[in-house]
Design a protein around this nucleic acid. Structure first.
Length: 426
RNA sequence: GCGUUGUUGGUGAAGUGGUUAACACGGUGGAUUGUGGUUCCAUUAUUUCGUGGGUUCGAUUCCCACACAGCGCCCCA
């Protein structure tokens, strides 16, 4: 029996309902921010990720799905959303429009990782990228998007953690300080950190293996190496967050897994029991040099991504059900074969008039049809027999109250509008 | 990439080295061919118990490998 590839899953049933509703909710929220929808290819030239996002990151160096197509092109399934959006932003010269511009996306990403609860090899992210301002106001507003989203969903117990990586200058002087500090202790660090020391010493700070060690506690702090401009930026972000009434914590160990960040970085965590290392629901930050680095003009940006699998898991753990169930307004069945054309025509008529209609395709007996009407949770049942066809009236039964009505064919839509009017509002 | 537990139908699952793989839910058909959701009956895994190989007279059961899933790391959303 052929089965789905490891780390993938099918979206159907309840999960499909959740995802569809979530999408509607996000669409509405994004409209409120005047953010525009963007969809970019699921695969891109490998170079985009390997050079743009950062060769030193785990995500790119050992988790991408790389392949050659039949034309010998090197392609990579996108492991994250930002690089593709940035590429599109440049290629389509979106920077020529009036900036700032906010773009949002939602779709599958791919990483070759060991699957776990809330972690798949094909997984979904919703994200926003805001281009065209280096003002901390934009950082704060983007963090606000995530907070608002979680509030709308009714998710309690989330915490916002922020940090700053400073601008290039600050980052460089901090990097030097770290190199100097860790040099004598190099042998005490784990294997990964020894590698990080060479390539990206900042990442030593969020190493889980070495985190408890004394040398980590005394390591130089980014905050002490920020230049005036970087410090001001970070202070402003905090000021603005407070103004919006967003609770947050400064966590100097947040470094993020992607190389392109500058200044603000943030993570939003769920404080849910049993989530362990998988508790980061959303993460993002500012990337003032990414657009330029990928080959565009110098345009600053800030963005974030939310992992849907984890978010839905968190909702479930909190007992939050966002499914939006739609049931048929009407279930129509025929007494025997002869009425099939009539049933189809009537169903079409009602569907075009805006009603949700299910019909019996199998000419079952009455009992089975009533059972099925219950099963699909139809609100009304219409029975079509010889008498109804000939005399142009319909027998309609309310499936909850069991009240039965005889309605003229011409008055049917009015009748249903009146009866169903209230239910359709929610 | 490392460690660990598991895998029986549409679902939840019990079970055993050897005759019909329990029970429940769900599905289908019927009792009740123009009025049901209760009840009752029948039927619903059987070239089968994740796949392949081994031990055995005989394996779903024991052993090995692989695949997949869960959990813990690493990493990350």
């Amino acid at each position: 029996m052929l089965q789905k590839p490891k780390g993938t899953y099918d979206i159907y049933g309840d999960r499909a309902l959740i995802q569809l509703y979530f999408r509607k909710l996000v669409e509405a929220l994004m409209d409120k921010y005047n953010a525009k929808y963007i969809e970019t290819p699921i695969f891109e030239a490998s170079e985009l990720f390997h050079r743009g996002v950062g060769e030193t990151t785990d995500i790119v160096s050992k988790e991408t799905y790389d392949f050659k197509d039949r034309g010998d092109r090197n392609l990579t399934l996108r492991p994250e959303g930002t690089a593709g959006v940035v590429r599109s932003f440049i290629e389509n010269k979106l920077y020529a429009e009036n900036l700032p511009l906010k773009l949002w996306y939602m779709g599958p990403m791919f990483r070759y990782e060991r699957p776990q609860a809330g972690r798949y090899r094909e997984f979904y992210q919703f994200g926003v990228e805001a281009f065209g301002s280096d003002d901390p106001m934009m950082d704060a507003d983007m963090i606000g998007v995530v907070v608002n989203l979680f509030n709308i969903l009714g998710l309690k117990g989330v915490s916002v953690n922020i940090n700053t990586l400073g601008d290039r200058e600050s980052r460089e002087s901090y990097r030097k300080a770290l190199l100097e500090y860790f040099k004598p202790y190099l042998g005490d660090l784990c294997e990964d950190c020894q590698r990080r020391y060479e390539k990206n010493p900042l990442r030593i700070l969020d190493c889980k293996i070495d985190s408890g060690k004394e040398i980590m506690k005394n390591a130089p702090k980014m905050i002490d190496y920020l230049n005036e401009e970087s410090k001001r930026h970070f202070d402003k972000v905090q000021e603005y967050l407070k103004a919006m009434g967003i609770d947050f914590k400064v966590n100097s160990n947040i470094v993020r897994g992607l190389d392109y960040y500058t200044h603000t970085v943030f993570e939003v965590q769920a404080d849910i029991e049993g989530f362990g290392a998988q508790n980061t629901l959303a993460a993002g930050g500012r990337y003032d040099h990414l657009v330029e680095f990928v080959g565009g003009p110098s345009v600053p940006g800030v963005g974030f991504a939310v992992g849907l699998e984890r978010l839905f898991l968190a909702l479930e753990a909190e007992g939050i059900d966002i499914r939006k169930c739609v049931y048929p307004d009407v279930y129509i069945f025929n007494a025997d074969e002869k009425q099939k054309p009539y049933v189809l025509a009537l169903a079409n008529h009602l569907r075009l008039a805006g009603f949700n209609v299910e019909i019996d395709y199998k000419t079952r007996n009455f009992k089975s049809n009533f059972k099925r009407a219950d099963k699909v949770r139809a609100k009304y049942i219409i029975i079509i027999g010889e008498e109804e066809v000939q005399n142009k009236f319909l027998t309609i039964k309310n499936n909850v109250t069991k009240d039965e009505y005889k309605v003229e064919l011409d008055n049917l839509i009015e009748f249903l509008d009146e009866k169903l009017g209230d239910d359709d509002e929610d």
